[in-house]
Design a protein around this nucleic acid. Structure first.
Length: 464
DNA sequence: ATGTCC
């Protein structure tokens, strides 16, 4: 008996050694070479039948390989993408379409849609909506889990630009890593949520979450005062002009760390996945990691909404006014939703939930209007709408191609006062919100329009 | 998006 006999049977790699060892043991039991080779062929055909005996180690190794092959087969992309609906195709660059095509080739993908603000992101494009079966994709939600909008509408009082500026400077905090000092913090029930105790990672992140609650972060996040025009009566608030506060913020460092942690686990769980879809690695909701992500993601979603509540609470108190109307919505999250009669996991990565009658907020840019909308529940859009205007220029392209004076001129023409901000967030870096709203007329109805007047953002890489 | 590696 030698390696040649073994390899002739089709054994490879470490299995050759395991097979030779087992053959040696059978030989010692008095079997002939011919009999042993016949047994080895059977072990190879049906390893499960030889677990626990003389061939146990070999059978285990073969079983593990079979399982791996089955897993990899299950992770294979479909050759062609499942069909999906695109809104405002003329506004969407090819790269975003290509990313959505890859997402629609995942074996877990069942349905999808692309919103008119779509542009390239990591994994799923921003403005992408993806319905998966019993699976959740961390990068289908994005890094800023629970990123969301909130609008507070106040009676129209006399608030000067200087007063608005002072309120934003005193009662909001911007920038990566920032939080409120201990003596400045406000309580919120989300910090007592039992889910913080559900996982070691969440227990660990609780302190950071306490510090950062009620802060706004960086990038495209903002807090702004403006004039809000309600076109039709809403919840007892008559049509007309109002003062309003609009904020865009997320789950800060807490959500970012949850996203990073589960993205790594998801990628590690799918080593055989096509490299083109690596960032779309999913977690089965039947797996422990999938359940953990679901718990952590939903906590980050509630935390982000609480974050807005505190920002609005601080400003309302300072204004000594109670909002007449409040609206909020998450636009980076996954939901369980019925799609064509079955429950799927609908990921919205930069997309506003727009079920029939549901209110949502779609901002334009630091100097362009934001819209209060009501969903029409369009099934082909998986009951969604855009989450904003969407980028026309990437951050670097904006820094290269836009000049400061043009941006200043744009703000001046619209009477916008800016605190902080950067050229990478210039209005000219975004698609025209009017076109984006027009392209989703089948998805949402416009109820009101907000014109920013005093805007606060984090300091960008290059100021305006 | 986030002090860009728990």
């Amino acid at each position: 008996m030698n390696g040649k006999h073994i390899t002739n049977l089709g054994f490879t790699g470490a299995d050759i050694r395991l097979a030779l060892d087992a053959a040696g043991r059978r030989e010692a039991m008095g079997l002939t070479r011919h009999e042993i080779l016949a047994e080895l062929a059977l072990v190879r055909q049906n390893p499960a039948g030889y677990l626990g005996g003389t061939y146990d180690t070999l059978a285990r190794s073969l079983e593990a390989q079979l399982q791996e092959e089955i897993d990899q087969l299950a992770d294979q992309l479909h050759e062609r993408p499942q069909p999906y609906t695109v809104y405002g195709a003329e506004l969407i660059e090819e790269g975003a379409r290509a990313q959505m095509d890859v997402a629609m080739r995942l074996p877990v993908s069942r349905s999808g849609a692309l919103m008119p603000d779509a542009h390239v992101g990591y994994g799923l494009p921003i403005g992408g909506v993806l319905a998966a079966e019993n699976a959740v994709i961390p990068y289908g939600v994005g890094v800023d889990i629970g990123c969301s909008m909130r609008l507070s509408v106040f009676a129209r009082g006399s608030l000067s630009t200087a007063e608005a500026q002072q309120l934003l400077e005193r009662h909001t905090r911007f920038g990566a890593g920032v939080g409120w000092d201990r003596r400045e913090r406000l309580p919120h029930e989300v910090l007592d949520d039992p889910d913080w105790q559900a996982l070691p990672l969440l227990r660990h992140l609780h302190d950071k979450a306490v510090t950062q609650l009620g802060t706004s972060g960086s990038g495209n996040h903002f807090a702004e005062f403006g004039r809000f025009t309600l076109e039709q009566e809403q919840n007892g608030v008559p049509a007309g002009d109002y003062l309003a506060l609009l904020t865009h913020s997320g789950s800060r460092g807490f959500g970012a760390q949850v996203a990073g942690h589960y993205t790594r686990l998801a990628e590690a769980a799918r080593p055989g996945l096509d490299p083109a879809a690596k960032k779309l690695s999913w977690l089965s909701l039947d797996s422990e990691e999938g359940q953990e992500y679901w718990t952590a993601m939903n906590l980050a979603g509630r935390y982000a909404l609480a974050n807005h509540e505190q920002i609005h609470q601080r400003i309302s108190r300072a204004l000594k006014m109670t909002p007449l109307l409040s609206v909020s919505n998450s636009h980076n999250l996954a939901w369980k939703q019925m799609v064509d009669g079955r429950e799927l996991i609908v990921h919205r990565k930069g997309a506003t939930p727009a079920a029939r009658g549901q209110l949502g907020l779609i901002p334009g840019s630091m100097a362009d209007p934001a819209f209060l909308v009501r969903g029409r529940g369009e099934p082909a859009a998986l009951e969604s709408a855009s989450h904003g205007a969407g980028r026309q220029l990437g951050r670097k392209a904006a820094e290269r191609s836009l000049n400061k004076r043009d941006v200043q001129q744009y703000l001046k023409e619209r009477g916008v006062t800016l605190i902080g901000g950067g050229i990478d967030e210039a209005p000219q870096a975004y698609k025209r919100i009017e076109q984006v709203i027009a392209a989703q007329q089948p998805l949402v109805e416009v109820l009101g329009r907000f014109q920013p007047q005093v805007v606060r953002m984090d300091t960008g890489s290059e100021d305006i």
